[in-house]
Design a protein around this nucleic acid. Sequence first.
DNA 1: TCATTAACTGAGG
DNA 2: CCTCAGTTAATGA
Length: 243
Amino acid sequence: MPSDAIRAALVERLRISSAIADKDVREIEALPISVRQFPAETAVVRDGERATNCCLIADGFCARSKTIASGKRQILSLHIPGEIPDLMSLFLHVMDHDLSTLTPATLGFIKHDDLQKLHRRNPDLAEMFWRDTLIDAAMFREWIVNVGQRPAPARLAHVMIELRERLRLIGRVDGDSFEMPLTQEQVGETLGITSVHVNRVIKQVRQDGIVEFNRGRVTVLDERKFQELADFDVRYLHQSPTL
DNA sequence: TCATTAACTGAGG
DNA sequence: CCTCAGTTAATGA
């Protein structure tokens, strides 16, 4: 994938969450980006490492996670094309968590130096990246509530709907279905339950005629029941900059 | 390798 | 007694 297409993915997403001016688009288009391919389940930046680049997802799915002493991994967030999952490393240089691919992925790397300079000469773009980071924090708050308080079926449904609403912004929802290319093991690490239990929960919601999860794809069977189960309020994603 | 299911266990309401 | 969820193990795709 050419790096132009990668920049386009970023611009496209920023355009939706924060009205972006043409001159700012040109600034982003001028950023040097080096592109690399990664296999599935590969660390991009590890906990404790000093980051010198930010990583823009061009294609594929990534996750941020932390691993505890026993070896168990908690997935903290899922990331889709057009996002910069480690934007925080621009100011917090030493990583406090891992960033890994979930699927094979194409990633673009932007030097901290270049992003810093961009921030300094263009406050509008700096504000946009700041806004992005605040939304990231809002998603973490919702994630804590989800994993800490909701019953497992609601937890699953909530993560699914959040992913769907984010995929919708980049035009990757196809009618009543969308990609969620995670194994049941990875879903378990996302929800804080075992993969065996993930399987039971998936079976349950399928039998209840709510949602189907098959080979990395979610298909909604009953939108009303799905929303009700998930207890989902789209507000925390702050998708519309004007409201 | 990943998904599925059963059987058993225990916590907690 | 019921629901939820972890463990273990067997089996299938």
